[in-house]
Amino acid sequence: MGNSKQAILNRKYWKRWSLNWNVLSILAVVVALVENLLVTSSESVDNGPYRIFLLVFMFYLLFVYLVGSFFNLRVKFYSGHFAQLNLSLGILLCIQDLLTEKFGTLALPYFVSFAQILEQIRYDAVLLLESMISSLILWLISFVIGTLIGVVLGILLGRYRQFNYWSFPYLKVIGIIPAAAWMPLTMVVFPNSFLAEVFLIVLSVWFPVAFMTIGGVQSILPTYFEAAYTLGFNEHKIIQKVVIPGALPNIFTGIFTSLGLSFTMLVISEMIGAKVGLGWYINWAKSTGNYSQLYAAIVIMALLFSIIFALINKIQEKALRWRRTAS
């Protein structure tokens, strides 16, 4: 039992645990902290948030290392696997600090130290949080609607010849147009900018999902349908128990394809029409010429979009667990 668990962990966290790398990764963060404290700065930056960040990072690495070594096998494999990557992160933080804030090789206003970005995030915390939440709400609503439309259309187009014959040629033409091309029109036609933004994001999402779903439905083995007929399935059951699960791998491919497009459209549409959201925040930063605000928004976006990506990945893993063979 213990061995099979180790085997699974070994496959996921394949880099071998070693004391050296663990110690070095913690040391690198300490060096970055000491460097920030000791080297004199050429720019005036409040380094408080950055130092707290480095301290938290350091204690996190220490914590993971200790828990892994003494209490939990899973954490041990995890810390062993990522130790080298964390080391590189510590070194990179140190280098960027020296190049920007300390020596001014990459100078303001276009290049901003990570410390400055963190200070900006702290300073603008409330506004950034509000922007993030309104972006998240807009994205979530639009993405769910777009995905649903895509899946439903994909199933209809993939399964029913008549429907495909009459609508696919038209839908293809609409779907291939970049959603952004409709922007000038939507801003005028829709009663408010929120609806216009939802429309644009939905427009960028539905087609990749629909297109992949069609392929998914059509690649289901005929035997699965024939078995369904001999088992007494009606059309409703066939859709529910054969078509949807059979097309699900492709549906997820479509969702991941449209994910990037949806983020792009989210930011662009917020830049143009909105008075809230991360896209608006960036646009506002541009007008004041404050580039550390831009970087702050980018860091928040990187975080937000990564979390969304990871969540959808988890959902996919769960929904398609039947594809895993016996371990």
Binding site: T223, Y224, E226, Y229, T230, L231, G232, K241, G246, L248
Partner: peptide, 20 residues
């Protein structure tokens, strides 16, 4: 004229649903 539950059919090649 068409398949029915009263006539069982076991296919030559795997027909179990892999997702169930």
């Amino acid at each position: 004229v068409k398949p029915s539950v009263s006539r069982g059919y076991v296919f030559q090649h795997g027909s179990l649903y892999p997702w169930e």
